[in-house]
Design a protein around this nucleic acid. Structure first.
Length: 308
DNA sequence: ACACTCAAAATGATTACATCA
DNA sequence: ATTGATGTAATCATTTTGAGT
C-alpha cells in the first residue's frame, strides 16, 4: 500500500478559514486577525509536515466537500443553532470559560440534535444533561467529570480549522469557541489532542518508511556481499589479476559508476590477453526521501573498494 | 455484562517570555 | 545596561476517564 502524502500548507493564515466561515455566516465577531501578536511559543507557523489531516483522501477517503455541514451548505441559519453542546456562548471577555454565568441560562428551548438529526423541543436532551453536569463540574464540588462527544458538525468545523492552523492564538480560540458554543478550554483541548493524533500518525508513517529503508539497505548489503564474494573468487582464480597494482575504485554518487584511481589502469585491464572491465556497477541504495521532506537518509557519498 | 476503542479531559513537565529587584 | 529570580502562559507527553460499540 502506498501512502499518498501531501505537505500541509502552513502558510495559509488561520483567518482564511474563519473568514470563509464568516462568509457563510458563522464567523460573526471574527474580525480579529492573526497579527494580534497574542500567539506565543506555539503560535508561529508549524514547520512543513506531513499532512495527516482527516480529509486527506488516503487516510480518510471522504472529502470535506462531501460531508454535509449545515453551516457550509444552503441554510447558514443552522449555524447559529449549532448548540449541540448547549453551552452558553463563550464569554466575550474570554478566559477559559470560568467566567461563564449559569450554564443553563442561555439554553434555547429548541435544540437541534445534529447527531441523529432529531430536534428536541423543550426539555433537556442527553447532551444537554451532560452539559449541565459538566457545568457543575466546573463548580467547586466538581468531583465527577462528565464527558461528552463533540458533534460531527463541531468536529468537522474544528477539523477545518485545524487544516488552516494546527495551533490557535487566544483570539482564534475564543472565536472558535464562540462559534461552536464550546468553552475555549474545550477548543484548546481538542487542538491539543488533535495535534497528538497527527503526531502519532506521522510517527507511524515515519516508522513504516524507515522499515522500508531498512529492507532496502539489507537487500543492498546482501547484494554487495555477494558481489564481493564473486570478486574474491575471481581474484583467486585469476593469478595475473593478483599482480595488478592496487586499484582503488570510487563510485561516483551521481552516475553510480565506479572510477578507478589506479595509476596504471583505466576502465579496462588486460588479463590473460582479454579485456576485463574493471568497472563495477555499484548502485547506491535507492532511498526514498522522507515523506515529510525533513529528514534525509544518509546518502552514500562514495563507495571505496580497496583490493586487498 | 463485559471488554475494547476512541476521544475528551486532567495532570505534570518544559519552555519562552515578561517583569522586577 | 546587565543579570538572575520569579511568575505566567502555552504546549507537549502521559495518563485517566467516560461514552459508545
Amino acid at each position: 500500500m502506498e501512502l499518498a502524502l501531501s505537505l500541509g500548507d502552513a502558510s495559509k493564515p488561520f483567518t482564511t478559514f474563519l473568514d470563509k466561515a464568516a462568509t457563510f455566516g458563522v464567523g460573526k465577531g471574527l474580525e480579529e486577525k492573526r497579527s494580534d501578536g497574542c500567539g506565543r511559543r506555539g503560535s508561529s507557523d508549524p514547520p512543513v509536515q506531513l499532512d495527516l489531516l482527516p480529509f486527506t483522501p488516503v487516510l480518510r477517503p471522504q472529502p470535506v466537500s462531501q460531508i454535509r455541514i449545515p453551516w457550509l451548505t444552503e441554510t447558514c441559519g443552522a449555524a447559529r443553532v449549532l448548540d449541540v453542546n448547549l453551552f452558553p456562548p463563550a464569554a466575550e471577555d474570554g478566559d477559559d470559560g470560568t467566567s461563564l454565568s449559569s450554564p443553563n441560562s442561555a439554553v434555547s428551548p429548541f435544540q437541534m440534535d445534529f447527531r441523529n438529526g432529531n430536534a428536541e423541543f423543550g426539555g433537556r436532551n442527553k447532551r444537554e444533561q451532560n452539559e449541565g453536569d459538566r457545568a457543575s463540574d466546573d463548580d467547586e464540588n466538581g468531583s465527577t467529570r462528565k464527558k461528552l462527544r463533540l458533534s460531527k458538525e463541531q468536529s468537522a468545523f474544528l477539523e477545518e480549522s485545524f487544516k488552516e492552523h494546527t495551533t490557535l492564538n487566544p483570539k482564534q480560540k475564543l472565536a472558535l469557541a464562540k462559534q461552536l458554543n464550546l468553552r475555549p478550554r474545550q477548543v484548546e483541548v481538542w487542538f491539543q489532542n488533535r495535534r497528538a493524533r497527527t503526531k502519532l500518525k506521522q510517527t507511524e508513517v515515519d516508522c513504516e518508511y524507515l522499515k522500508r529503508c531498512c529492507e532496502t539497505l539489507t537487500e543492498e548489503n546482501r547484494r554487495l556481499q555477494k558481489e564481493l564474494q564473486e570478486l574474491r573468487a575471481l581474484k583467486t582464480s585469476q593469478p595475473f589479476y593478483m599482480q595488478l597494482p592496487a586499484t582503488t575504485l570510487t563510485m561516483c554518487p551521481s552516475c553510480e559508476r565506479v572510477a578507478t584511481n589506479s595509476t596504471t589502469t583505466n576502465q579496462t585491464s588486460n588479463v590473460n590477453g582479454s579485456q576485463i572491465p574493471v568497472e563495477l556497477s555499484l548502485s547506491k541504495p535507492r532511498l526514498l526521501p522522507f515523506p515529510n521532506g525533513q529528514a534525509q537518509a544518509p546518502q552514500a557519498q562514495a563507495h571505496q573498494i580497496a583490493s586487498s
